[in-house]
């Protein structure tokens, strides 16, 4: 890779008191890469992804986004976060606002866009995720899959350089998983740099450029997608794959 990586994680460690949740993790994410992070629950995937936009602090190692140390004392976290979109497992739409206002909020209060600009950009994004006609619906009146697509539009509204997905389909009913994965697949095809924590191995196989396998707070494998699926190097990854793909 000629360019320096968008995200560079070096020997990152994090612990809650005596319990270490991340141990010596290193990953690079280059421009346009789709990195899928998988592994058993409690392996530290979500914690790792939340370190990238500073929602989780870390104690040791370094994590830079476009060369800026995320955990640095002088880092302007809000400014940095406005360039990284994030989608959560449980959607986390603002329940007191319509879908449209959910997508507008940060555009107005973070980017300083005018109301009319924010509306037109939001409608464009809601259309992109197939929800333009639900713009005036409140989250409570949307299905899980629809809520998650609004959440994706909300994250895209800042025109981020990178998108983080923290188990975006884990809280969804099976029939809604695909509508969310479809949106993510299109996003990947459009060249978005993405880090995706997921158990959806079909999605990983089809879309990811690399797969990172974590277990017990460590990165056990970090390999090109085809290599990971056809011949996982470690016993733990083999075991994980056989357990998750048997059905």
């Amino acid at each position: 890779m000629s360019q320096s990586p968008k995200i560079a994680i070096r020997s990152l460690s994090k612990s809650y008191g005596a319990t270490e949740v991340l141990h010596d993790c290193s990953i690079d994410v280059g421009q346009g890469e789709i990195v899928v992070v998988c592994g058993p629950s409690g392996s530290g995937k979500s914690t790792l992804i939340k370190c990238i936009n500073g929602l989780e602090p870390y104690q040791k190692g370094s994590l830079t986004f476009e060369g800026i140390e995320v955990g640095g004392a002088k880092t302007d976290l809000p400014q940095l976060r406005s360039r990284i979109g994030m989608v959560f497992q449980s959607f986390e739409l603002y329940p007191h606002m319509t879908a449209l206002r959910n997508v507008m909020l940060a555009q107005i209060h973070v980017l300083g866009r005018s109301k009319s600009e924010a509306i037109s950009r939001s409608m464009q994004l809601l259309d992109r995720v197939g929800l333009a006609e639900h713009a005036s619906a409140y989250p409570a009146n949307l299905s899980g899959g629809q809520q998650q697509r609004v959440a994706i539009a909300r994250a895209l509204a800042l025109d981020p350089d990178v998108m983080l997905f923290d188990e975006p389909t884990s809280a969804l009913d099976p029939e809604m998983i695909n509508e969310v994965l479809d949106v993510m697949t299109r996003l990947a095809r459009d060249g978005m740099t993405m880090v995706v924590v997921t158990h959806e191995m079909g999605f990983a196989r089809k879309v990811a450029t690399r797969v990172v396998f974590m277990d017990g707070g460590r990165i056990v494998e970090d390999r090109p997608t085809e290599a990971f699926f056809s011949a996982p190097e470690t016993e733990r990854a083999k075991e994980f794959l056989s357990r998750i793909i048997t059905h």
Partner: peptide, 13 residues
């Protein structure tokens, strides 16, 4: 707290 994180993640102070 998830809502707070969601807000922070969009760059809101």
């Amino acid at each position: 707290t998830g809502l707070e994180q969601a807000g922070l993640a969009t760059g809101l102070r």
